[in-house]
Simulated scan of single mutants.
Amino acid sequence: MTPVPATAPVRGPRRRHSGTHLFLAAMALMWLAPLLWTLYAALRPKAVTDKYGYWSLHGPFGLGNFATAWTQGRMSAYFGNSLLITVPSVVLTLALASMMAFGVSRFRWRFNITLLVLFTAGNMLPPQVLAAPLFEMFKHTPLPYSVSSSGTLLDTYYAVIAVETAFQLGFCTFVLANYMKALPAALTEAALVDGASVWQQFSRVILPLSRPALAALATLEVVWLYNDYFWPLLFIHNGDRLPVTTGITNLQGQFLLDYNMIAAGATITVIPTLVVYLALQRHFVAGLTLGADKG
């Protein structure tokens, strides 16, 4: 009698993913093509582009447009303005959202779900709807001239930071609340037995465990707030205080547009967000895949 092997090889048609790979390659090309063409235009002198056209492949190539865009566009000053808006907005948003998420996820009280729904529903409202009311409210909010040159909240970083924080707070609260709900309740119960206060439970137990989610949100918020164009343009009237996304318009001449130099300026503005993403890439990917292996 011929013995039967313990495990017989399973033979069948090998699964092919050529269609999926082709689709992903096409989408990646569609996404990268404008960025690569912008970089290509930034490396070409304007005289070469005027002579041969934007769709030509003639050289020479160089970094002259980047140097001109940096000096003529005063990019260093505008980068500083973006830093003064983005960093406080991200820090305030994550700090307030983490405390709110801790309250609605780790404690049961009558209106915790209602409050979370209200925070989330705020993201459904288009920001442009509140542009006029917020402008009028900030216009009639007095501030000392030592704080604001306009005597109101207008033309200050405080107005932009407050609005950016308010509009991003709902999304961050929703994400952090869902993550904190997945943490075992035994952790805070053990801390409570050991005599930990509510603040100690939040700062020493829950907050360190939420680091991957906070890193993922920090990456997204830096990109979103740094690239925001609408609110700074609405509330800040002094051109020297504009962030880099709005200050890049200084590269446009009155009678002539140098699109090669504008492409170089746009490429320069991408560098900070790229650096932030590369620095937090590991935490960002870990935050996106949280709970993927849970049934």
Rank of each mutant, 00 (worst) to 15 (best):
F202R: 05
F202A: 04
S203Y: 13
V205H: 00
V205C: 01
V205T: 00
I206H: 03
L207K: 08
P208M: 10
P208T: 05
L209K: 05
L209D: 01
L209V: 02
S210G: 08
S210R: 08
R211M: 14
R211F: 14
P212K: 06
P212W: 10
A213E: 04
A213I: 14
A213R: 06
A213C: 08
A213M: 15
L214P: 01
L214G: 00
A215Y: 06
A216R: 03
A216C: 11
A216N: 05
A216H: 02
L217G: 00
L217F: 07
A218I: 05
A218H: 01
T219R: 01
T219P: 01
L220G: 06
E221I: 05
E221W: 00
E221T: 10
E221C: 13
V223I: 15
V223R: 08
V223M: 14
V223K: 10
L225E: 06
Y226V: 04
Y226F: 15
D228R: 05
D228T: 03
D228A: 09
D228K: 03
Y229V: 08
Y229R: 11
Y229E: 04
Y229F: 14
Y229L: 12
P232V: 07
P232S: 08
P232E: 06
P232Y: 09
L233I: 04
L233G: 04
L234D: 03
L234E: 03
F235E: 02
F235M: 10
I236T: 10
I236A: 06
I236G: 06
H237T: 14
H237W: 07
N238W: 06
N238F: 03
N238H: 06
G239V: 14
D240T: 14
R241K: 15
L242I: 04
V244G: 02
T245W: 06
T245K: 09
T245Y: 07
T246P: 01
T246S: 12
I248T: 05
I248Q: 09
I248F: 10
T249D: 11
T249H: 10
N250E: 13
N250F: 13
N250L: 14
N250T: 09
L251T: 01
Q252N: 12
G253T: 14
Q254A: 13
D258E: 12
D258W: 09
Y259H: 11
N260S: 12
N260Q: 14
M261H: 04
A264H: 09
A266F: 11
A266D: 12
A266P: 02
A266L: 15
A266N: 15
A266K: 09
I268L: 15
T269Q: 14
V270E: 05
I271R: 13
P272I: 05
T273I: 12
L274C: 11
L274V: 15
V276A: 06
V276T: 08
Y277K: 00
Y277C: 07
Y277L: 15
L278S: 08
L278N: 04
L278D: 02
A279D: 02
A279T: 11
L280C: 02
L280P: 00
L280F: 13
Q281L: 11
Q281I: 05
Q281N: 13
H283S: 10
H283F: 12
V285D: 00
A286I: 02
G287H: 07
T289L: 09
T289S: 09
G291C: 04
A292F: 10
A292T: 07
A292L: 12
A292C: 02
D293A: 15
K294V: 12
